[in-house]
Every structure is written in C-alpha cells, then in structure tokens.
C-alpha cells in the first residue's frame, strides 16, 4: 500500500465514529497499545520538544526502506504518532519525502497537527522527512 492509500484507510476508519469521544477513545487505545520506542532511544538527541508534550523519534534504514520508532509522553499525541507511523513506515526515502499527509485532515483530529498546538507532532513530521532525506543522501553519496 502506498502512504496515501494507508492514509485513506485511516481516514475511513475514523469516519466510522460520529462522536468525538469515540474517536478519542480509539486514539487512546492506539496510544496505550503500542510500546513505540525503546527506553534507550529516549535520549535527548531523539527528543522533539513541544511546549505541551514531548515526542521522541528514531529511524533505521533497511533494504531501501525506512522504519521509524517514536513515542510521546502524552497518550493522545502517542496515538496520533502511531497513526503517522502506520502510514509512513516501511517506505522508501523518496516516498516519505514526498508523502501527502493530508489524510489526517479527514480524521477529525487535525487540530492536533496545527503548529499552534505545540505538541511536537508537526516537528516530528518534519524530522521524519529529514531522516528520509539523510538516508537518501547517504545512499546516493551526496552527503
């Protein structure tokens, strides 16, 4: 599945809930369910500081695909992080760099992705794309 296809799938899942509370309950379940990152990876270099909640992200490059691990201290942020990772993980650097993540607009949760929320999510997306760029540069020897 492409990133966009996964995105559509996620948006469709959220459209099933007509109540905001159900959406959040689902997100909270996602957030609670996933031990997203190894404690050892929660080091300052991997920390994205938002005013409100913190996000950690690290990445590995294997067989031409990027795998991200991320976590947050706030459970709603963590749920959103897991949605993002579900879409972008196991894709090539090019796919990630060019990914259209506007599917999140259709989940009814897009407030969280506004830069003014300062929960670290917006910076996390930026950081993920930087990782992709760096992996690509390393591979093509342009770094």
């Amino acid at each position: 599945m492409t990133i966009e296809e996964t995105g559509k799938q996620i948006a469709a899942e959220f459209e099933l809930f007509d109540d905001w509370m159900d959406k959040y309950n689902y997100l909270i379940e996602l957030g609670k369910g996933l031990p997203l990152i190894d404690e050892s990876k929660k080091k300052p270099e991997n920390l994205i500081v938002g005013c409100q909640s913190r996000v950690w992200i690290s990445a590995e490059y294997m067989d031409g695909k990027v795998v991200f691990h991320a976590d947050s201290d706030a459970i709603i942020t963590k749920g959103l992080v897991s949605l993002l990772l579900r879409a972008i993980n196991n894709h090539t650097p090019d796919e990630i760099m060019n990914a259209d993540l506007s599917f999140l607009d259709n989940t009814g949760l897009k407030d969280h992705l506004s830069p003014t929320r300062s929960n670290g999510l917006v910076s996390m997306i930026k950081q993920a794309k930087f990782y992709a760029m760096a992996f690509k540069a390393k591979e093509t020897g342009t770094l």
């Binding site: 706030a74 709603i76 942020t77």
Partner: peptide, 22 residues
C-alpha cells in the same frame, strides 16, 4: 496518570477553556 495535554484536549471538548503546560 494523565498527561496535562491529554486532559486539556478532553476538557476543551466540553467547551471549557483551561490552559495546560508549563
């Protein structure tokens, strides 16, 4: 066991303006 950001998000859905953070 609740992060202030999470609490603020839910409280906002009840039309209540509180501030969370440092």
């Amino acid at each position: 066991n609740v992060h202030p950001y999470d609490a603020g998000t839910i409280i906002d859905h009840y039309g209540i303006a509180v501030r969370t953070g440092h």
